[in-house]
Design a protein around this nucleic acid. Structure first.
Lengths: 343, 343
DNA sequence: GTTTTTTACGAAAACGTTGGCGTAGATTGA
DNA sequence: TCAATCTACGCCAACGTTTTCGTAAAAAAC
């Protein structure tokens, strides 16, 4: 690679000092117009661009924000990044993405690498491994040093930093409520294992809805899926269990899509015999048969909010107390729960 | 934010010089063991980590690779990034992602920003706007300066740099071939507008397959979709056109899924009355009814290859001549073309 | 003709790090 | 006792930039 042109090289070319060149390029009238124009023309010709590392070092500011997500091959997280990028770029920041791959160790090293001066702040969604291990010392260290940090989606209560979360309880509530509005009585819940916060929260919403409606909660209708095992086999049990449900609330799109597939294989009509709701994260819901009613999570908005919180923190235009933004989850009613909408 | 601890502060603490501290932390035996241990303990306690900006500036190496993609909310690009991350991290590099949002201008500024010293090399997939404008001067400038650059998926022939492409011609060929193997005679092609390279290449494959089979190409069966218009309406014309097809080859998952939806609405049985093939980019294909036969694009592999080419280039373990890696596209046969596979 | 002001530039520090080189003082050898 | 050798550290340059301050020479003022 050709070495980039620097102030020093320009200075040597004109036999002036580095500071003269710097000032000339900044159009300082400390420098005679004649020399100024010559230097500018030369710099222009050789496409001089200030080395950003040097600037970052000098200004003690990188204008880069780091993002650590569990995985990127996931529509929801991609959408959040999109939102972060949009807001951050508008504010003159760049985005550096790292993946934890759901691993505690990788999350720790990522944080260590990124906080070595390369970013002004961090936006993170917790790795599953971290939630399982329940070890947050790497975040606590950051918080203790007042390092700008925003957690989103997968957060942890004990951490005193800015957060953006989706109203998962509300989402579960809305989903279950909708099913009851459609006259369903036996609503199965297909959720994750307990340590996955979002699953747990959506379950709370489900319980709240049933409770409010005066229905009792049948634990046999709650199925906890292990993502590492065979999904198909686990979800099949929903249909072979003691109490066959007339509706299913699944905490994500995949579970819901698989449930529909199995239901159809077993000759059940959707939504007549069984209604299904998922939580949207990708495009699957739109293209299933029938299209899947889903709780939509506004990932883009979430990303924007997270970026806004972080940049406010970085630029000290935020109060000291950590703030938590809640993004409401809305229901997108499609044909899997509601015959008339089956356009 | 609390200021980070630096060599200078440690030096002041022990009333020694900065270089002494630096050497002590590097375990240099130039420094007495006693002092060395004291300094290390102190640094450890205060969690000293070398400022990476300073290191990057000094070493003239960032160990960061920049990635510019048109959009991230796209399963294929996410998968590629995943592959890049995997390989890059293993080699000690970090990844900085920027989005061009398909815009020429944003691509230009992104490149300008990233090549100001913040990254050692660039992996890029061309923005649609760039392909449309057919203006590649920003890349030509990089190539002229021997800046490490790898183009992937959406590339341009005139650019003399490393590339990783998918065998789109082969993919189109395999898809069309499979449909002919299933006995189909009137294969419609739903593709993009001509300036979108991948669409154009897949069309070539389609033509090659038909030609090889001695079938003539009916231009009325080729539909070019404008992504900015109503997809549904445009794809509907495939069915209302002069020659109703008995098979459809769509150049992406969405077109294929929409085509299937319309086909079913019109009472056509899949695959009996009409077979459909798409190009996988996300998870849609798995969950449509019936599951969609697709040409799979190995995005992860592509990312790994791109990262490998780039890092070899950065570390000068690559021959001068640019190299192009071709990733083969394979067919994943599902029920939308083949009754017996409908498990 | 002397002083003051202005013009036009240079020197140097600072951001944080590393590594070659220099060297004071202690130790060793003869 | 003097030289040679170590030991253990400090100095300085370098990476590229910005900015404050200092200062020659020229211009203006008296």
């Amino acid at each position: 690679m050709k070495p980039r042109i620097t102030l020093k090289k320009i200075a040597k070319e004109f036999d002036v000092s580095i500071s003269t060149v710097s000032k000339a390029l900044k159009n300082s009238n400390e420098i005679s117009e004649e020399l100024r124009e010559k230097i500018k023309a030369f710099a222009d010709y050789y496409q001089y661009k200030p080395n950003s590392l040097a600037l970052q070092l000098r200004n003690q500011k990188t204008s880069v924000i780091g993002v650590i997500i569990p995985e990127i091959v996931h529509h929801f997280f991609s959408t959040v990044i999109d939102g972060i990028e949009e807001y951050a770029n508008a504010k003159g920041y760049n985005v550096m993405v790292c993946l934890s791959n759901e691993s505690f160790e990788k999350e720790v090293t990522n944080i260590s690498v990124l906080t070595n001066g390369s970013v002004d702040g961090l936006i993170v969604s917790l790795a599953r491994g971290t939630q399982q291990k329940n070890d947050y010392h790497h975040f606590e260290a950051l918080i203790k040093d007042d390092f700008p940090l925003v957690l989103f989606d997968r957060v942890h209560d004990s951490l005193a930093c800015d957060k953006v979360i989706i109203d998962d309880v509300g989402g579960g509530f809305k989903g279950a409520n909708h099913l009851m509005d459609m006259g369903r009585q036996n609503i199965a819940l297909i959720t994750t294992q307990d340590f996955v916060t979002v699953g747990a929260l959506r379950k709370i919403g489900y319980r709240k809805a049933l409770h409010k409606a005066g229905m009792e909660i049948d634990e046999d209708l709650i199925y906890k899926i292990d993502d590492k095992q065979d999904l198909y086999g686990q979800i099949e049990k929903v249909f072979t269990g003691p109490k066959p449900p007339d509706a299913i609330l699944a905490v994500n799109e995949i579970y819901a899509a698989i449930a529909m597939k199995i239901a159809r294989e077993r000759g059940l009509r959707i939504p007549e015999d069984i209604a299904v709701i998922g939580f949207t994260s990708g495009l699957i819901s739109e293209f299933t048969t029938p299209p899947l009613t889903s709780v939509v999570q506004h990932g883009f908005l979430m990303g924007q909010q997270a970026a806004e919180l972080l940049i406010n923190r970085i630029e000290h235009i935020a109060p000291k107390e950590p703030k938590t933004e809640v993004i409401s989850a809305d229901l997108n009613v499609r044909a899997s729960t509601c015959i008339k909408t089956s356009k």
